[in-house]
Write a protein that binds this DNA or RNA. Structure first.
Length: 189
DNA sequence: TCTGCGATAATA
DNA sequence: ATTATCGCAGAC
C-alpha cells in the first residue's frame, strides 16, 4: 500500500514515481507503465482549470482519492488525486502491464485480440479492471472500494521517457507525460 | 506501422 | 463545439 503522504505532493513529482507501482482493482492488477500529470489552475488541459463543478469535485478532494471521469461519450479514465485538498491536481494512469486476473480482463475486453491491448490506454485499462464512475471518489490509500496502489518493491525507473501529453490541444507543449522506456504496454511510444 | 474517421454523450 | 479515447478501414 502507498501512504497518503506519497500523493500529497506536486503531481509532476508523483507521476514518475508512480511508474512500476501496481494498480489493483478487486482480483485484477497491473503494473503502471505510463502516466500524465494534470496541474489545476496553471494547466489549461486540466478539468480543474476553471471552476469547481459536480464532475471535477473529487479532483479537488484530498490526496489519495481516485478521480474517474467519463469522456467521448463512452470511456472511463482514472486518476490519482495529488497535492493538497482544493488544489485540483492529479495523475492520469495511461497504461498498465497486466499482472493478475488476466482471464477476467480478457472477458471484460472481448475486443482485445492480444493481451498487449488489454490495458494499453487510459480507457482500455479501466475497462479491463472494471473501473467505472461507480469508483469515483474511492480511497486508494484505505482501499475502501477495492481499488488501491501497491508498492511491491520494484523501484521506479531512473530513466523514464518524458514527452508531451497525449490528446490535449490546450496546454499542449508541457512535457508532463512519463513512461517506462522500451515497454511494449505503453499506449503510444 | 501510420493515418483518418465514426461512435457517442457530458460539459461548457 | 469540444473532448485527458478507441477500434476499424485503408494505404504503404
Amino acid at each position: 500500500m502507498v501512504p497518503r503522504a506519497f500523493y500529497r505532493r506536486d503531481p509532476r513529482l508523483v507521476a514518475p514515481e508512480l511508474l512500476h507501482k501496481v494498480l489493483v482493482a478487486g482480483d485484477r492488477s497491473g503494473r503502471i507503465v505510463e502516466v500524465e500529470a494534470y496541474c489545476g489552475d496553471i494547466d489549461p488541459a486540466a478539468h480543474t482549470y476553471r471552476r469547481r463543478s459536480p464532475r471535477n469535485e473529487v479532483m479537488f478532494g484530498p490526496p489519495g482519492l481516485l478521480y474517474v471521469y467519463f469522456t467521448y461519450g463512452m470511456h472511463w479514465c482514472a486518476n490519482a488525486v495529488c497535492g493538497d485538498a482544493d488544489e485540483g491536481v492529479a495523475v492520469l494512469i495511461r497504461a498498465l502491464a497486466p499482472l493478475d486476473g488476466v482471464e477476467a480482463m480478457r472477458a471484460a475486453r472481448p475486443g482485445a485480440r492480444v493481451d498487449r491491448d488489454l490495458c494499453r490506454g487510459p480507457a482500455r485499462l479501466c475497462q479491463a479492471l472494471g473501473i467505472t464512475g461507480g469508483h469515483n471518489g474511492a480511497d486508494l490509500v484505505t482501499g475502501d472500494r477495492g481499488v488501491t496502489v501497491v508498492d511491491d518493491g520494484v523501484p521506479a525507473p531512473d530513466d523514464p521517457v518524458v514527452t508531451t501529453r497525449v490528446g490535449v490541444s490546450r496546454g499542449a507543449g508541457q512535457r508532463w507525460r512519463w513512461y517506462v522506456r522500451h515497454n511494449r504496454f505503453v499506449s503510444r511510444p
